[in-house]
Simulated scan of single mutants.
Amino acid sequence: MKEIKVYPLTKASSPPKMEFLNGSNKDINTVFPDNFQFFELLAQLVEEEPAENFGPLERSMMMAIGIEKGKPFNPDEKTKALLAEAARLGGAMARANTFASSAPGVFYYPDRQWQGVREGMTYTFSRDGAPQIDARNNVYYMAAGNSPAMMAKNVGEGSQYLWTYRDADGNFLDGAKNYKLHVLPNIPAKNFWSVVVYDALSRSELQNGQPIPSVSSYVKPLINPDGSVDIAFGPDEPKEKGNWIKTVPGKGWFPIFRFYGPEEPYFDKTWKLEDIAPAK
């Protein structure tokens, strides 16, 4: 990343020195507000970015509420109140669409709780040129970014992701309870794999007191003799030494399992990720 140089074209002959900011160990709020400020931030984004970044449908909808590039966004008090309520209701609808969704194609395996991007979906979340709004919101409420390499089938390259909000019994994951994930041998990830736990409210990494709420092939996890990996989740550290991600009572959580350099058994589903089970 530090080989990148960004500067105005007018300074190409003498580019300025790049300044890189380190965000590690700093509090950063990446969650959009569920109030009128949402629309203020949207208006700022529209003003700062090229108009072509937004499709005709999006621009039309924003123009209907007074957001248009090159024009001030200054709604009256009545409109502000309506937009504030719209943001609150929109946030509630997004949460339901994401966490409670059971629409066809949401689950990656028909007999498991793990979800993935629906088959046949492009990285712009369209099918035959038609925007798939619910499918897009289903993912973007809990995840902030996307790229073609994350959605296309590239065996041994790019990345793929699975996530779940429920345990093997279909119950939402509870920060006060203990769980176990048994990961079968031969994880189909050419480069590396990881599982990261997120706070269901903020959709950001769970603040649990651990440096990183994660287990991955990079941290030299404890591996069973048969090559499988067991990962414990819960507020209480297991008595037996192992791979443990601490959760927080009173907070919902969800994991994302990442496959970097996903291999064919991931795509043809001859290798399957088991459900997270309540600890016994």
Score class of each variant (00 low, 15 high):
M1L: 15
K2L: 15
K5T: 12
K11G: 05
N29W: 06
F32Y: 09
F39W: 15
A43M: 11
N53S: 10
M63Q: 14
E68L: 11
G70M: 08
F73H: 06
K78G: 12
K80W: 08
L83F: 11
E85K: 15
A87Q: 08
A87G: 12
G90P: 06
A94D: 10
R95M: 06
P104F: 00
Q115K: 02
G116E: 01
T122Q: 06
D128H: 03
Q132A: 03
R136N: 10
R136G: 10
A144M: 12
A152W: 04
V155K: 06
W163T: 05
T164Q: 00
N171L: 08
D174N: 15
K177A: 09
Y179M: 01
V195N: 06
V196T: 13
D199Q: 07
R203V: 11
P211Y: 12
S214M: 07
V215N: 02
S216V: 02
S217K: 05
P225K: 07
P225R: 08
S228G: 12
F233W: 15
E240A: 15
K246R: 15
G252W: 04
G252F: 07
F254Y: 11
I256P: 01
P265Y: 03
F267I: 04
L273V: 03
I276W: 03
P278R: 14
A279R: 12
